[in-house]
């Protein structure tokens, strides 16, 4: 049995546990988790056992902490998937107990896209948090940023907002509530908030793009955001 277990990667960690090779069990399980696409739940358990194996090893504490940190990062991504609103899962025909592993791109889309009809500032902030999992060199990176904020802008009916007191009038919009929450959560807005001209000319906005009072309100809000950020 030992030899059989050792010769198959998806089983070798069982042999490693039996022979107290905790570090090896940790890395094999982590590799298996990275390859897992079929079930999010299976990926979670592979990562969890991998984490426990790292903690069970007698390596230096800082190395263990580094390994645990890496696993936690992966578990956090699954946490975003587990916490998708029930409505979104239903709209996408996903079964919470049998979901495949979704990529960060997909998760961002699901949090801000039409599947999440009732998306609020918390959903948009989750999408911003998920940006950490997208490589900056990824060709989709800039597009995703624009997409998140563009979708946030589309949540409100801007034509009904008065331009007399732009700052207070805009403060209840999903877009500005998202900014406020992100600011409070310590999200790097310099990095994740796109240039105002880019955002306002984004195709995503459709007809809203040509609405001058909308343009005015968002620009006024942006100025305020810039002021607050430079004060920090």
């Amino acid at each position: 049995l030992a030899q059989f277990l050792a010769s198959h990667e998806h089983l070798s960690w069982l042999h490693d546990i039996n022979t107290s090779k905790w570090d090896k069990a940790h890395s094999t399980l982590k590799t298996l988790a990275a390859k897992e696409t079929k079930y999010a739940a299976r990926k979670k358990t592979l990562l969890s056992i991998s984490k426990l194996a790292a903690l069970a090893s007698d390596q230096p504490q800082d190395l263990i902490q580094q390994q645990v940190g890496g696993i936690n990062n992966e578990l956090q991504l699954l946490f975003f998937q587990e916490n998708l609103p029930a409505e979104v899962l239903q709209n996408k025909g996903l079964d919470a107990d049998n979901m495949p592993v979704l990529a960060p791109h997909d998760l961002i889309q699901l949090y801000v896209g039409p599947e999440n009809d009732r998306a609020n500032e918390h959903d948009f902030n989750k999408a911003l948090d998920l940006m950490q999992y997208i490589d900056e060199d990824d060709p989709a990176y800039e597009g995703l940023k624009l997409h998140i904020w563009g979708r946030a802008l589309l949540k409100d009916d801007w034509s009904s907002i008065s331009t007399d007191e732009p700052l207070s009038a805009c403060s209840h919009t999903v877009f500005f509530k998202t900014v406020e929450l992100a600011f409070k959560n310590g999200v790097d807005l310099q990095e994740y908030l796109p240039d105002v001209d880019m955002l306002l000319s984004s195709e995503e906005l459709g007809g809203l793009k040509d609405n001058s009072s909308f343009q005015y309100l968002v620009r006024a809000g942006y100025e305020q955001i810039q002021r607050v950020m430079t004060q920090e």
């Binding site: 984490k51 426990l52 903690l55």
Partner: peptide, 30 residues
């Protein structure tokens, strides 16, 4: 699936296990 619960950051249960207890627990999972 017990591994998910013990390893979770939310519940922090793994922090109350000594190393030898974690090892024993992993043996049981095996």
């Amino acid at each position: 699936v017990l591994a998910d619960i013990i390893a979770s950051e939310q519940h922090q249960l793994y922090t109350v296990f000594r190393r030898d207890e974690l090892q024993r627990f992993l043996q049981k999972l095996r």
